[in-house]
Design a protein around this nucleic acid. Structure first.
Length: 114
DNA sequence: CCCTGATTCGC
DNA sequence: GCGAATCAGG
């Protein structure tokens, strides 16, 4: 195993965003030990306590079959809650995406394509 | 038992 | 530098 710049970047991003080592680890395909150790080496600092402490891995969002082959991640335990919780009865109106959301989307795309 | 991050230690 | 094993907890 070797930590590609991409991996490190993604790792840092997800970590600082508040994802747990286990989450990042399972996602990237490393053991959480590796992630944690890497974070230590990097001089890991999270600064705050962003959301996420418990697993919410909802599996890998199945993307295009084409890409799926490329980024085949066996992954994951699904610990999502069977609970169906709806925030608003009304359908979501047109919503402007915040920078954070866009960033998250980008990250998602990246992590599923690369 | 599930999980969390932190550290050690051989490679 | 890397990561499994381990530690120390929640």
């Amino acid at each position: 195993m070797s930590w590609d710049a991409n991996d490190v970047a993604l790792l840092k991003r997800l970590w600082t965003e508040g994802h747990s080592a286990g989450q990042i680890a399972s996602r990237l395909g490393y053991s959480r030990n590796a992630v944690s150790a890497k974070l230590k080496r990097l001089g890991h600092k999270r600064g705050h306590k962003p959301p996420t402490a418990s697993p919410k891995i909802v599996s890998v969002p199945t993307r295009k079959p084409k890409l799926a082959a490329a980024c085949a991640r066996p992954v994951d335990r699904v610990v999502s809650k069977p609970k169906v919780l709806r925030l608003k009865p009304a359908a979501t109106p047109a919503k402007e995406l915040t920078k954070r959301e866009l960033y998250a989307m980008l990250a998602d795309a990246v992590r599923n394509t690369g």
